[in-house]
């Protein structure tokens, strides 16, 4: 009788332990790679991205309808509008609009620091950027040279003034976070920003013809 009780208890303990270990293993297996917090951020990013894509689809659908209508001049108008928009995107024409102007006075900041700052604004949907009268888009080389940081081959000495056009509220959030981080950096003397209703960017980039790339 006593032996049977011991066996029963051992069986029960083994069962509970097995269930517990299996549950734990299942959690660990599904958690490989990404934690739940990162997934939540990812969901937020994807929602925002999908909203932007939906807006683009709506614009393109309207444009297609306009072209299909066969209205006189519809194609010319669509092409003219697109040319103007693409020139602004590629930094080929002066632009203006709401945004922020950020000033960073520092000694010893590198090209990587500037690239990170520019990328932070780009990630906040910056639509046009200028640094000390040099237009910047993704693809313009920001490099570290013996003379200092260069943008498109031209030396850009501190203090840096970053003029950014886009959604002012969103850009201001990023500028605030960057200012806080920069002020904690011993190399930085001052880092300030202001929201501006009409940022004017006069600098432009010269279009470079393709040498190697061919349309497929």
């Amino acid at each position: 009788m006593r032996g049977l009780s011991v066996w029963l208890i051992a069986l029960l303990v083994a069962f509970v332990a097995t269930v517990q270990i299996r549950s734990q293993a299942e959690v660990e297996r599904s958690l490989v790679g990404v934690d739940a917090t990162s997934l939540a951020f990812l969901i937020d990013d994807l929602h925002s991205a999908n909203d932007t894509l939906a807006s683009e689809k709506a614009d393109l659908t309207r444009l297609r309808a306009s072209l299909q209508s066969g209205q006189t001049g519809a194609a010319d108008q669509a092409l003219t509008d697109e040319a103007q928009r693409l020139r602004a995107i590629e930094g080929l024409v002066p632009v203006q609009g709401p945004g922020v102007v950020m000033q960073i006075d520092a000694r010893g900041l590198t090209a990587l620091d500037l690239e990170d700052a520019l990328n932070n604004f780009m990630a906040a949907h910056a639509e046009a950027i200028d640094v000390n009268d040099h237009r910047v888009v993704t693809g313009v080389a920001v490099e570290q040279t013996s003379e200092g940081v260069t943008i498109g081959g031209a030396v850009v000495a501190a203090p840096w003034t970053l003029s950014v056009i886009g959604d002012s509220a969103r850009l201001a959030q990023v500028a605030e976070l960057m200012s806080q981080q920069l002020r904690a950096d011993r190399r930085v003397r001052t880092a300030t920003y202001r929201t501006v209703t009409d940022v004017v960017i006069s600098s432009v980039i010269s279009e470079k013809p393709f040498v190697y790339a061919i349309p497929s």
Binding site: A49, T52, L53, S55, E56, D59, Q84, R85, L86, R87, A88, I89, V93, P94, V95, Q96, G97, P98, G99, E127, A128, I165, G166, D167, V200, I201, S202
Partner: peptide, 12 residues
Amino acid sequence: DSSLQIPNVAAS
């Protein structure tokens, strides 16, 4: 294949 919208930019 995504969006290239610049709703806040106007040509100077």
